[in-house]
Design a protein around this nucleic acid. Structure first.
Length: 638
RNA sequence: GCCGGUAUAGCUCAGCUGGUAGAGCACCUGAUUUGUAAUCAGGGGGUCGCGGGUUCGAACCCUGCUGCCGGCACCA
């Protein structure tokens, strides 16, 4: 006798052990049809597996998206693998998990798959779904399993089993005459997968994610519970493409890149206006927070980089030059050595600390060619960098101040969902454990005192100190790592930076490395996508356009323009002999936030008609009122 | 860096199996003086990414390189 309790609180008694499918059928006919899996005491299981003890049971249907979609996607991966092996015998299967929005499967095959193959595979997948093959779970003996897969020529599967712990059960799922090693669970039959899936892309992927291993061929797909969801997802992808910063960068004339300078940005006036607005803002915030600002050389002798350790650890990412005098120089990949040089240019007293030194430093790093991506990953970029020199006693307070500043600044851009990652000592590190204890507790202490939650990244810190990373989530739910805060007692020592303490002894200061935007280039890329090009007025590179309806209004339009510019607004006038429809369309496409329409009426009355981007209505205001309103709105956050 | 794809006018793209290039938008000129998301007509513009090769002949086929795109790895 077993008792199964259901989510609604009811309990059903059964004489003998019962399968999930039988349980669903016992509850209702329609549930039996819709059932995809069951959870038994919270553990997700196949419908076909027998429940033989008292338990809390829940029947899973497509309505339980969080559970059902991963199941559907995982099944889609299996069906795809079967389709591939049907069509291309000799192809080895490796792994094929469900992922966000879809699934993939990695295959080992000599011949590359082509985009045409995807269509064929998809067609074969639909046949397998139509055949509605039952998925049957089997448990195999470990050695038999290894032998079976090895004999089949499935070396990767055999390797996977060998890597499993001795006591792990080896489960295999069959669908028709095809089977795959898999821990499951799965849908009861391939028909339950439905046809709301689509193969999306081909890619290379290293076996076990290790670049020392051979490269496999990965096929990605997306899969959903129904066609409506699939279509919504595909539409979402199209929308995301429309806000791609590379596309908007061209459409809004922000910047361009070209072949002669891979990974470097040619900023156009519009993009540079944005860049300057961000720097102006940050400069103001930093000055208010007690920072001073410096600027240091881009090209410095290799000896500098040997002292800092970059030459030994970062050489492959550095650009170097050789001049006629045979000295080797390097383009700075980081600003710290320059800043340390400024620190060392005077004898520092404990009274000078904390000393907060900012630099909008342009750095060059030779990034792998495959990593480059628009503004997001470049080889030449500008950091909103700063280094804070302080005593060990001040360290925790300084960390807290930095975190406060970061969180506050992100808020000004509408990033309220910020997650913090804390990375502690890595295996390969310098410095003694006592120092690491201090550095880590300073960082953690700062967060704890502020009551901020954070996740732990054990062993992911820099070799010289632990770090915090600030990951922000944009308007369409994507995560971006921007800010970072690192504590360091190593570099000051390498450069023999010291301060004179109260007792007249020389001591090395603690050095905090921090950046908020991270890279200005990247941050502009993120903002562009976050706002979909519709920047808030204070950031917009073109804030207002005065558009005339007839040439009768030209003089008035010039006066309006003059007034706007006098109030500090980035404004233009469009006096072209074009219809107002044409002008509105063009400036709206260019994402200009405010269009001031002036015609004969406005000219006579001394007013303007304000039309906001995306809005249908207009607001007629007296000129001085309009200018005051707009200049108020265009003020950057304090 | 690795795997796959791709490169034609400023932009988006067409150009069948090889016979020396075409559209829309943008730009220029003219007409139109227009009331809230494309007025009409005319015109100029391309070493078909770069270098080799095959061929009587290459945007098209082969090959090397470079950039870009999608992933993987990397992101101190």
């Amino acid at each position: 006798m077993i008792a199964l309790s259901l989510p609604d609180g009811s309990v059903r008694q059964f004489e003998a052990p019962i399968s999930g499918a039988e349980l669903a059928a016992d509850i209702s006919k329609s549930l039996a049809k819709k059932a995809l899996a069951v959870t038994v005491n919270g553990e997700l299981r196949d419908l076909t597996r027998t429940i033989d003890t008292d338990a809390e049971v829940r029947v899973i249907t497509a309505a339980d998206e969080d559970i059902a979609l991963p199941l559907i996607r995982h099944d889609a991966a299996h069906v795809m693998a079967q389709a591939v092996q049907d069509l291309y015998p000799g192809t080895q299967v490796t792994i094929g998990p469900a992922i966000d929005n879809g699934f993939y499967y990695d295959f080992a095959r000599e011949t590359p798959f082509t985009p045409d193959d995807l269509e064929k595979i998809e067609a074969r997948m639909k046949e397998i779904v139509a055949a509605d093959l039952p998925l049957i779970r089997e448990e195999w003996d470990r050695d038999t399993a290894i032998k079976t897969f090895r004999d089949m020529g499935e070396a990767y599967k055999a390797e996977i089993i060998e890597a499993l712990p001795e006591e792990a059960p080896i489960s295999v799922y069959r669908q028709g005459d095809w089977f795959d090693l898999c821990k499951g669970p799965h849908l009861p039959s391939t028909g339950k997968l439905g046809t709301a899936f689509k193969l999306t892309k081909l890619a290379g992927a290293y076996w076990r994610g290790d670049s020392n291993n051979e490269m496999l061929q990965r096929i990605y797909g997306t899969a959903w519970a129904n066609d409506k969801q699939l279509k919504a997802y595909l539409t979402m992808l199209e929308e995301a493409e429309k806000r791609d910063h590379r596309r908007l960068g061209r459409e809004m004339d922000l910047f361009h890149m070209q072949e002669e300078a891979p990974g470097a940005v040619f900023w156009h006036p519009n993009g540079w206006a944005l860049f300057r607005a961000l720097i102006d803002y940050m400069r103001r915030r930093q000055e208010a927070a007690g920072y001073v600002e410096i600027n240091t050389p881009s090209v410095m002798d290799r000896a500098m980089w040997e002292t800092s350790g970059h030459w030994q650890t970062f050489r492959e990412h550095m650009y170097t030059t050789q001049t006629e005098d045979e000295r080797i120089f390097a383009l700075k990949p980081m600003n710290c050595p320059g800043c340390l040089s400024v620190y060392r240019s005077a004898t520092r007293s404990y009274r000078d600390l904390p000393l907060r030194i900012a630099e909008f430093g342009k750095v060059n790093r030779y990034e792998p060619s495959g990593a480059l991506h628009g503004l997001m990953r470049v080889r030449e970029f500008t950091q909103d960098d700063a280094h804070i020199f302080c005593t060990p006693e001040q360290m925790e307070d300084e960390c807290r101040t930095v975190v406060e500043l970061i969180m506050d600044i992100y808020k000004d851009f509408g990033f309220t969902d910020v997650r913090i990652k804390f990375s502690d000592r890595p295996d390969k590190r310098i410095g003694d454990d006592a120092t690491w204890d201090k550095l880590e507790s300073a960082l953690k202490g700062a967060l704890d005192h502020m009551g901020l939650p954070y996740s732990h990244n054990p062993g992911e810190g820099a070799f010289y100190g632990p770090k915090l990373e600030f990951v922000l989530r944009d308007a369409i739910g994507r995560d971006w790592q921007c800010g970072t805060l690192q504590v360091d007692m190593n570099l000051p020592a390498r450069f023999q930076a010291v301060y004179v303490d109260k007792d007249d002894t020389r001591k090395p200061p603690v050095m905090l490395h921090r950046a908020l935007f991270g890279s200005l280039e990247r941050f502009i890329g993120i903002l562009t996508e976050h706002y979909a090009g519709r920047f808030p007025l204070w950031l917009a590179p073109r804030q207002a356009v005065v558009a005339t309806i007839t040439s009768d209004a030209d003089d008035h339009a010039r006066a309006v323009l003059k007034a706007l510019q006098a109030a500090g607004l980035k404004a233009e006038a469009d006096l072209r002999n074009e219809k107002i429809n044409y002008k509105i369309r063009e400036h709206s496409d260019a994402k200009v936030p405010v269009i001031l329409v002036v015609g004969k009426r406005e000219a006579e009355e001394g007013t303007v008609a304000i039309r906001r981007l995306g809005g249908k209505d207009q607001e007629i205001l007296a000129l001085d009122k309009a200018v005051a309103t707009l200049s108020d709105e265009a003020a950057p956050p304090a």
